[in-house]
Design a binder for these strands. Structure first.
Lengths: 373, 373
DNA sequence: ATTGACAAAGAAAACGATTTCTTATATAAT
DNA sequence: ATTATATAAGAAATCGTTTTCTTTGTCAAT
């Protein structure tokens, strides 16, 4: 009996008042039961209300609730750009955690533009979201965010100030050690490193990890084996050409990302060398293409989805006032062993693409069929 | 003077009542001015209100407005999976259009699961979103959607029922013609086609386009030159092996997506053939990797962002009741000419990745610098 | 001068929940 | 038997807007 007095509106959703009336109780008690208030209600009336709500298929109007409670169960996601390669997996992780806890996320692409970010926060404030996650944002400091929006926030960053509070970042130093450890363990003594450009935390930390692990194996650090790239294929290509032309060239190369690793492959091919037989190669990131290029890249996985859900978890902690601040979190990725490092022998098949696996599973199970028409 | 009577709350945003009081008018008139109502207000009072709002930096509370107007300026995006390759660009297009019109989007990953989609729509209904866009959804029919949520909706699809109303889909037939036209224009007479699996609109339409264009060039249709793949690299590899082993092998191959085209490259290399010199190749989709694999793939672009903003535009039309229904829209992509087809001569550099261009521009302009510390 | 129409403003209701305030009842303590 | 206390329920206020209803004042037509 969803308020059936009106004639014009056909599908009017049932309100709390409908439930209260049906249960024969007041608005207030109905609310207390259905919002899990800790105000005492007798078991008998509680059951009456629950039954009525069930029967009427009552779903609370979150807008109305939000107006009163100032809680919208909605958080803002300010991301650099959903087209940027790491953003989708990070947002996937965030969304997964949020959804498990009945929160929603509103994404805004800020395009690495401080003005856009400022506007984004203002717009989110108008919607009275409960918190903000900034993913690869231009805005780096908590103070700056706090000045723009008076809500809890978390950073997910690969670039700067990794160890600020309220940050979730990859453990790049650890990741670099994994790569070098693997190559050293395969017996390589001269391991080159193609790093990223200056000014990035990733660049600094991966270099540190590279040096750490060389030291752990008592291998000398040779600066001529470290070349700076710019993350793109072309720079990996050029860097590898330099390295392979050295008097005593490296027998293994660790590239600070998979794009540059791909450039190494092309440079090696151009020099008539085989990967991994003549030069072993490990990349970083575990990008989607790493599994289907040739040779498939051994690489250190960037733990994007974990970073996402850890960020979401931390944010909800802040929102629910379980904690007052968040210590920076370092998230570790693991080594993904494929062909480019030489650890795996024999022929291989190309890995199917990761992103579309879910639908393909349905298709294989016969759930996906052509329309009858 | 944002309701400064309370002592405890420090940062309380200014409300409409504050503006009204400051302007010396009633709540109602203030609202009429600020919400652009068509109720008459004298220019004098209008200016008073606007000035007060400006001075107090008034931003309407969208939650409160939504409660009264039943309009939240928020739409739901039910997507297959944000990790799936076409979803980010489509959502980017949607978000861009929405944002221009002061709407926000809530993304839910449905993972191609009908149960998840049903729940998603129920959850969105609780938030009283103004409409829904279903991107690559399991749910195919408008009736089904209408049964679950009483709001306008639009489909963005590459799979089924492309020509249903309320759908935005790629013009695959046109795209396939572009590919074949290009190869035929380069003088190829035997053009093979590696198609997708049965049951997909893309498969049907691209085959039709392939046949259309062959006919336009008076080239015979040879069924032995058409092989069905499953969209993955491995299947393109196998298909190309078959094709290249034919008595009279094709001189050009059109692969129905870039992944299979990549498989063709590997098969050719395995057979000691060069792409494009020995076999020309055109792919489909213009995936991000197409620009930096070797040879870079000539391909037909999937117009994802356009599909996104057309979908958003159509949805807002429905929401604002400018139209009562949406005719299916076919969106065309263009040919992106790179190395694999043989039309471009000489050496080339690897294209930088598309997704991260924005940040790189900032970096080059010197806006991106290391922290001072 | 009276009436009617219309413009412009304010008062109050409405949206649908939560929460505070008030009241009624039962129980325990004096 | 009376009072105090605790429990459980309802009445009403509240959140910040929009919108309906009502009122006031002005002008034109009779």
């Amino acid at each position: 009996m969803p308020s059936s007095d009106g004639k014009e509106r056909e599908t009017m959703s049932t309100s709390l008042a409908d439930v209260a009336k049906a249960a024969g109780v007041s608005n207030a008690t109905a609310s207390r039961v259905l919002a899990n208030s800790d105000y005492p209600v007798t078991e008998e009336t509680r059951q009456k209300v629950l039954k009525a709500a069930e029967a009427l298929d009552y779903r609370p109007n979150l807008i109305a609730r939000g107006l009163r409670t100032e809680q919208t169960a909605c958080v803002g996601l300010i991301v650099e750009n959903i087209l940027s390669p790491f953003i989708p997996p990070i947002t996937r992780g965030i969304h997964d955690y949020l959804r498990q806890h009945d929160y929603s996320g509103i994404i805004i692409n800020a395009d690495w533009d401080p003005v856009a970010e400022t506007k984004a926060m203002a717009d989110l404030a108008r919607r009275h979201i409960d918190g903000v996650i900034l993913v690869e944002s231009y805005t780096r400091s908590s103070d700056e965010v706090a000045r723009l929006i008076d809500k809890p926030h978390i950073f997910v960053h690969r670039l700067f100030n990794s160890l600020n509070p309220y940050s979730v970042v990859p453990d790049d130093r650890h990741g670099a050690r994994l790569a070098v450890k693997h190559l050293a363990g395969l017996g390589h003594q001269r391991i080159a490193f193609i790093n990223g450009p200056a000014g990035w935390d990733a660049t600094i930390n991966r270099l540190a990890g590279y040096q750490d692990e060389l030291a752990a194996w008592n291998l000398p650090f040779d600066p001529t084996l470290v070349i700076r790239g710019d993350w793109e294929v072309q720079s990996g290509y050029s860097a590898a050409q330099q390295l392979l032309a050295l008097q005593s060239p490296p027998t293994a190369i660790f590239a600070a990302n998979d794009l540059m690793a791909l450039g190494v492959v092309y440079a090696a091919q151009g020099a008539g060398l085989r990967v991994p037989e003549d030069v072993a190669l490990v990349g970083y990131d575990n990008r989607d293409f790493s599994g289907f290029v040739r040779p498939a890249l051994t690489t250190v996985r960037m733990p994007c989805e974990e970073m996402g859900w850890i960020a979401a978890e931390s944010l909800l902690r802040l929102i629910n006032q379980e904690v007052a601040m968040i210590e920076p979190v370092l998230v570790k990725g693991e080594l993904v062993t494929r062909q480019s490092c030489g650890a795996i022998q024999g022929e291989w098949q190309f890995e199917p693409e990761q992103g579309s696996i879910i639908r393909r599973q349905y298709q294989e199970e016969g759930n996906l069929t052509a329309p009858a028409a």
